[in-house]
Design a protein around this nucleic acid. Structure first.
Length: 291
DNA sequence: GCACAGGGCCAAT
DNA sequence: ATTGGCCCTGTG
């Protein structure tokens, strides 16, 4: 990791909060201020000192910073307006934003998001990470060795690479009943039934409909893909955590249907729903609220 | 040790 | 529209 580049004057940017907010799975914390991040077929180390507005990215060049990482890390979005608008909504939202002041929504790879969130269903985050790691190790390419621990890291497999996996192979990666879903995603991708790059151009609604043709992709998983890969910020992925938070904060603890929560979020948060979801998720989960 | 839930979805009522 | 079952693992 000899190349290092620096990003300065970042506000509303906390790499720890960004990575720990449940949107990304291929990272590990290696010290109080450093993370290893496996993305874009590369392994980088990101260091941000406590409270600092600058970032060091190891194993990256200036060219890669411009062409890859500034977009991936969403450094050009103005979060001042977003956080302010949401904070004015209500007191609870203001607390959530204050707690997760440095959260940003990454622009990740659609294929990796598709498979990752198919795996995510009815699993806890550590388990999701483990399965994705297993799959990368089995079907991806090795990348740089990280010389501080001598461990080998792997790229996320392409659709072609992953299509060589049998159901048995996938089950060996501990994905369980999701194995046929992953196979279906590979097939629909390779035979052109779904062209992931085309979904950028569609509305969130159209793109969601398309994603849900894949087995194992329901409304929640489709919304996660739309938000974390396609930057469709008007969606509101509603999982058990968010459901409990919304019920607790906005409906006096009354049990609500998913469809009702979707309608509420769209109406209340508008085109910032995706950001709102991310702050609420991070706040609720880190503090084990409404459990 | 064992019940339970985990960033849900499918298939059968 | 509603509900049971699901691979597997960490937690209490």
């Amino acid at each position: 990791m000899k190349n290092v580049v620096m990003l300065e004057n970042l506000d509303h940017f906390n790499i720890g909060q960004i990575l720990e907010s449940g949107q990304v799975f291929r990272f590990e914390k290696i010290s109080d201020s450093s993370y290893l991040l496996n993305a874009k077929n590369k392994l980088i180390k990101i260091t941000q000192k406590q409270g600092s507005s600058s970032l060091l990215i190891y194993n990256a060049t200036l060219g890669e910073l411009d062409e890859i990482w500034s977009r991936y890390l969403d450094v050009h979005t103005d979060y001042q307006t977003i956080t302010q608008t949401l904070s004015y909504k209500d007191n609870y939202m203001a607390q959530a934003v204050a707690f997760g002041e440095g959260v940003r929504i990454l622009k990740q790879d659609p294929w990796e998001m598709l498979i990752s969130f198919i795996i995510s269903q009815n699993k806890s985050i550590p388990h999701i990470k483990q399965c994705i790691g297993n799959i990368a190790q089995q079907f991806g390419f090795p990348i740089d060795e990280y010389d501080e621990n001598g461990k080998t890291y792997y790229t996320f497999p392409t659709p072609k690479q992953l299509s060589y996996a049998t159901e048995e192979d996938l089950r060996a990666c501990k994905v369980g009943f999701r194995a046929p879903y992953i196979i279906d995603a590979c097939q629909k991708n390779l035979n052109g039934e779904i062209i992931l790059n085309d979904l950028y151009l569609l509305s969130a609604e159209e793109a969601k409909e398309s994603l849900m043709k894949i087995k194992g992709v329901g409304p929640k998983i489709a919304d996660c893909i739309l938000l974390f890969a396609y930057s469709k910020f008007e969606v509101f992925p509603t999982d058990v955590w968010i459901k409990r938070v919304i019920e607790g904060v906005y409906f006096k603890g009354k049990e609500m249907k998913l469809s009702e929560i979707q309608i509420f979020a769209k109406e209340y948060f508008g085109d910032l729903a995706g950001y709102a979801q991310q702050y609420l998720f991070f706040y609720g989960r880190e503090n084990k609220l409404f459990k």
